[in-house]
Computed example of a mutant assay.
Amino acid sequence: MKHILITGLTVLLISACATSPTGRSQLMLISPEMAISESKQAYVSTVTDISNEFQLMTDEAWVDRISTITGRLVTEAIRKYPDSRDWDWSVAIIDDPDTLNAWCMAGGRMAIYTGIVTQLNLTDDEIAQIMGHEISHALANHTAEKMSRAVLVNTGLAITSQVTDQNGYVLNGSAIAAQLALQLPNSRDAEREADEIGIELAIRAGYRPEAAVSLWRKMSQAGSGGPEFLSTHPSPGNRMDTLQDLGNKLKSLNPTQSKSAVHPVSIVTDTRQL
């Protein structure tokens, strides 16, 4: 029985390969379409739970700032990745001054915590680098990739369970995998990919590429434990050097730093909008 299950899993893995926007091979047990569908449910659940502890930001200055920055990035994302035009582009601004974090699920559903902006004293250019990086995780199907990893781990545990007659290891639904994807760290390859796509989006949107370097310098200096952001976004030691090189190479894409149009992005100020 164990041999049959392992053989079946091997065949599944071979047939589940995909290619990322940068040409990297990806494991895709979960399709991008399913990741978007399940992420919608996970987003509603996650943001609702968060809003029960912290307020969703409604301050007009915050809403205008985040919607403008994100809208310019989304304009460029749609231009280069037309399939994302119909995504439910939205941002929940979590009024939590102690948390330094931001994320984006499949389908363009995002969150940013006020703490990462206020504690690091971020400029608009630095916020654009964060949100561009997060948007890039969605564009490159990293949610589906992490969901696939979660399913694979639980499938392996399920095989052990059947052999040893142990129970309780099987993942109960892909919606749970979508929530787990928020907690799982990105691979270094996925991080490099999001850096590359994100800094390009930011440059095309009119934001300074140098801000990517200053952002990660601030991240690395943010306390002994580092921001929560780094728990799911591991930071290689040469990241700032790599971003500097990328910025220099891509600066010609928008040498005058002219600003993009602002694509409508919904700011979630009430859970009834979810």
Rank of each mutant, 00 (worst) to 15 (best):
197 I>Y: 04
46 T>C: 08
122 L>I: 04
192 R>W: 12
15 S>V: 13
24 R>I: 01
273 Q>S: 08
55 Q>K: 11
209 P>Q: 09
91 V>H: 05
184 L>R: 06
209 P>W: 13
256 T>Q: 14
62 W>A: 09
7 T>F: 08
72 R>E: 09
66 I>N: 05
221 Q>P: 01
168 G>T: 03
110 M>Q: 08
240 M>P: 00
195 D>T: 05
57 M>S: 11
142 H>S: 09
46 T>L: 06
245 D>G: 10
216 W>T: 04
40 K>H: 13
94 I>A: 04
17 C>M: 11
10 T>A: 11
215 L>Y: 10
107 G>C: 09
186 N>Q: 14
251 K>Q: 14
253 L>F: 03
167 N>P: 01
4 I>T: 07
47 V>L: 11
216 W>V: 03
27 L>E: 10
88 D>P: 00
10 T>W: 07
179 Q>S: 13
126 E>R: 02
146 K>F: 10
42 A>Q: 05
254 N>H: 09
34 M>W: 06
78 I>M: 10
209 P>L: 04
271 T>P: 09
12 L>K: 15
61 A>C: 00
144 A>P: 04
246 L>S: 06
122 L>N: 03
206 G>Y: 05
138 A>S: 12
271 T>G: 07
105 M>L: 08
11 V>H: 10
32 P>W: 12
104 C>L: 01
85 R>E: 14
180 L>R: 11
180 L>F: 11
17 C>T: 11
113 Y>N: 05
149 R>M: 15
174 S>C: 15
27 L>M: 10
116 I>M: 02
242 T>F: 04
89 W>Y: 01
71 G>K: 05
62 W>F: 06
195 D>E: 13
131 M>A: 03
243 L>D: 07
224 S>A: 14
253 L>E: 13
182 L>G: 11
90 S>V: 01
11 V>S: 12
80 K>S: 13
160 T>W: 14
269 T>V: 13
148 S>T: 14
2 K>S: 09
130 I>H: 02
6 I>P: 00
47 V>I: 15
8 G>R: 02
239 R>V: 08
60 E>M: 03
6 I>W: 02
81 Y>V: 09
30 I>K: 01
188 R>C: 07
43 Y>V: 02
226 G>E: 02
70 T>Q: 00
195 D>W: 08
68 T>K: 01
239 R>I: 07
209 P>I: 08
225 G>Y: 09
15 S>Q: 15
198 G>Y: 04
119 Q>R: 10
21 P>T: 11
109 R>S: 03
249 K>N: 14
74 V>M: 06
159 I>N: 07
170 V>A: 12
225 G>I: 07
